[in-house]
């Protein structure tokens, strides 16, 4: 199966600031990929590079085996729903569908009409008068009716209320169950994506911190709690992601493929949110260790 997104030392600079650097990724097809990171981490830059709205300053990127926006065939394969699910305020819902039909060779008009009816949207309604949730659903309908092999969504739910957010994700997940296609969606909140994504990319400070299948990540990361111990006294196969110490106790988040036998540790599972936070915490942890060494 072709990779849905492959990046090699990909970078993008705005003036002197790198928005994304040394990004190397290999995402297999058929996943719902969550791209997570704090605001300003480079998520939108990466998604725009994948969609072809931006060109790389360094490195390479291929999407579904082709160059982003490299021609009509490539454009037809990739759907892109930009941040805050923009629509044309002056056009009606029906006009949006007609526009989609004229612009997209593989347009599925029947499904689009059926979805609009099921959502209870009035085709004559101007998009500018829709609620945030309805606008997001309209944008999703357009993205799905295009029948892309990859649908990219940039922060699709962050501005929605909890109910609209849930409905949006329900519709998106239902669509992936009906017809297999890959999805990449970003959020600065892991919690929003925890249940929907089965592949994760964590981006912090313009760099990829961790990437992989969610099940694998959860199976290989553990929290260890026990009597205080220095990180250099952990077994070689245990990679420290984050560490916290009091005078008596140590709490580590580690990544390992091996079973943990040491009876001194209480070993517990991590939620996806804890796992992501541990990676985001990495920088502060490094700083803390440095301080302790100085002391």
């Amino acid at each position: 199966m072709t990779a849905v997104l492959r990046a090699q030392a990909l970078g993008r600079r705005y003036g002197r600031r790198w928005a994304l650097r040394e990004c190397t990724l290999d995402i297999p097809a058929g996943h719902v990929v969550g791209l997570v990171g704090p605001n300003g981490a480079g998520k939108t830059t990466l998604l725009k590079l994948a969609g072809g709205q931006l060109t790389p300053t360094a490195g390479d990127i291929t999407v579904l085996g082709g160059r982003p926006a490299g021609g009509p065939a490539q454009l037809a394969k990739v759907g892109f729903v930009a941040q805050d699910t923009p629509v044309y305020a002056g056009l009606s819902v029906a006009e949006h569908l007609r526009l989609g039909e004229q612009l997209n060779p593989r347009w599925d008009a029947a499904t689009a009409r059926e979805r609009i009816a099921r959502l209870g949207l009035d085709p004559a309604q101007r998009a500018g008068r829709l609620s945030g949730g309805q606008r997001a659903q309209l944008a999703l309908t357009l993205g799905l009716a295009k029948r892309p092999e990859l649908l990219i969504l940039d922060e699709p739910v962050s501005s929605l209320d909890p109910l609209a957010r849930r409905e949006f994700l329900q519709h998106l997940m239902e669509a992936t169950a009906e017809r297999r296609f890959s999805v990449v969606l970003s959020s600065h909140l892991v919690h929003d994506l925890e249940r929907v994504c089965d592949f994760l990319v964590v981006l912090v400070d313009s760099r990829v911190r961790v990437t992989g299948e969610v099940d694998d990540l959860l199976a290989t990361h553990h929290r260890l709690t026990g009597p205080r111990r220095d990180p250099d006294r952990l077994p070689a196969g245990q990679h420290v992601i984050s560490a916290r110490h009091t005078d008596r106790q140590s709490t580590y988040v580690i990544r390992t493929d091996d079973p943990i036998h040491d009876p001194a540790w209480t070993v517990s599972r991590l939620s996806l949110e804890d796992l992501v936070l541990a990676y985001m915490d990495q920088r502060t942890a490094e700083r803390r260790v440095a301080l302790e060494v100085q002391r």
């Binding site: 996943h31 719902v32 849930r166 994700l169 329900q170 519709h171 997940m173 239902e174 992936t176 169950a177 009906e178 249940r195 929907v196 994504c197 089965d198 099940d215």
Partner: peptide, 18 residues
């Protein structure tokens, strides 16, 4: 069905399949 569970819980289809 997988589709029903996915649509109801807003979860990944692979989760239900697994």
């Amino acid at each position: 069905t997988v589709k029903e569970v996915v649509a109801q819980l807003a979860i990944n289809a692979n989760t239900v399949l697994k």
